[in-house]
Amino acid sequence: MLEVRDVGYIYQGKYQSIEALKRVNCHFAAGKFYAVTGPSGSGKSTLLSLLAGLDLPTSGEILVEGCTMAAMDRDKYRREVASVVYQSFNLFPLLTALENVMYPMELLHVSKATAAETAKRLIGEIGLGEKTYQQFPVMMSGGEQQRVSIARALAAGGKIILADEPTGNLDSANEENIVKIMKNLAHEKGYLVIVITHNPNVCEQADAVYRMRDGELRT
């Protein structure tokens, strides 16, 4: 579903440029749960961002269902195909949980009623109760926030979930829960789930694990 070909990426800083990725090649298939791991600064988050279409590789290319990302409307890609889950959740602080989940659907011009209905279903599916609907992110625990952000990722209906350390800020109980949700999404609903993680427990549960070091990928 996603193919990374010879991808390199250079951060153009003010004083120096950093080669974050060096000729990375890999392949991700639908219905699988991948883990990407590696030490800090190894380029895993960069890879994820590129997979999310937040930027284009400096060299090489990323193919989505055989089409190069460079030729795609990447905003549309993020709206309709790939969703990102962050370690820090990145929910809109001033939107309620429900509104946060509705947001991607509203971007797709889904009617408000339908969006609300879907959002409520999704929130239910990830194991949160009705009382969370009207809560603002600050009022929720980290685990709850992360579930809302996963619900938001699912809301658009895209089949790719990209997660950047989704369990990094969570306790072990919550962590387990999130991993379980991710795994289910891949195996039962046919999502492509790519998780960046330091956590060996998460790696253990993955269908495949990519290890990164100094911008290079080793399987």
Partner: peptide, 14 residues
Amino acid sequence: RPEIAIMRSLGVSR
């Protein structure tokens, strides 16, 4: 800024 970033990541065009 962060808000813009989230919106962008959710696919809202620039």
